[in-house]
Design a protein around this nucleic acid. Structure first.
Lengths: 155, 155
DNA sequence: CTAAACTCTCACGTGAACGGCAATGTTGAG
DNA sequence: CTCAACATTGCCGTTCACGTGAGAGTTTAG
């Protein structure tokens, strides 16, 4: 039992099946997302196997979230990931310099990127909330009619 | 100028193009939704033209909202409309009886239906909100790193 | 070293949600 | 009544987001 339970937290690289299963996708979908330019595996094995690391998994979870929860198309997700990519490039650039001014600029860009992402999601939430409010108003009107029936008992 | 500006509020019936344009859909989509069982036009002309009334338009707007804003599939929308249909049947049944107990039962069912719909939408909002919270947390961490750079000026 | 299990890259197939065209019929203004 | 404008059904085409092999190569336990 000296074998590792799983390719857990550390800097382990996983192949496509394990990676896909981990985030709840199929290998085919993961390859398709790559084809669409949504991600590239951290590395390739000698035999050209795709190898994913933890940041890849986070990215895949992010994609899945946008697809399932928000109903974004892959094209829209690509837009959001453009920002994400810029942040990662910024991360490298951040560690490549020691100039405080430069570091500050990189971090500021990241913050702005996060804010754009939040706004995109928030707009969707707002529209959904409007639908909820609308339905709620109709519910309230119906409850009012219920009171009109004379019987004021709950359902 | 005695002609009506548009087939405005009243009990006017509109043909498919006007109806579709009014809610921002194409005639083709409207026919497809009918084919999928999402709605049936209020009436047909003598020559079998589809004729839509105001409640049809509301229904179409509801469908469009679920599709565009919530990203629901037509199958999921069909589920939600099952409830909507039940409400409309309830509306007829409501006016068909004068029994207060029966009327109360119908209204209670409508309220429950609205509440189910709200919950479905709310679950989606919650998941989106979780993504926003996540992104917000990352933003905050980045802002903290910004403070660490020594310069405490805003961006 | 072998064999099973996994992976690679094409490449074609599929279901959802329409777009678009054809052949035909209906409406309504003039 | 006529004729342009709109409608009908039917059917094939398309895009998106994958599913599903085929055929060949790679990894790794034993």
């Amino acid at each position: 039992m000296t074998e590792m339970k799983e390719a857990a937290a550390a800097g382990r690289l996983m192949r496509i099946q394990e990676a896909a299963a981990d985030v709840g996708l199929t290998p085919r979908s993961v390859r398709y997302y790559e084809e669409m330019g949504l991600l590239r595996p951290a590395a390739r094995s000698e035999g050209d196997y795709r190898l994913y690391d933890e940041t890849d998994l986070e990215r895949l979870r992010f994609i899945k979230g946008l697809r399932d929860d928000a109903g974004f198309s892959l094209a829209e997700i690509a837009q959001l990931l453009e920002d994400e990519a810029a942040r990662e490039r910024g991360h490298a650039a951040f560690h490549a310099t020691t100039d405080p001014a430069e570091r500050r600029r990189i971090l500021c860009e990241r913050v702005a990127s996060f804010e754009r992402q939040i706004q995109t999601l928030q707009r969707k939430i707002d529209r959904l909330q409007a639908m909820v409010d609308d339905t709620e108003a109709r519910r309230v009107r119906t409850v009012a009619k219920l009171a009109d029936t004379g019987i004021s008992e709950p359902c």
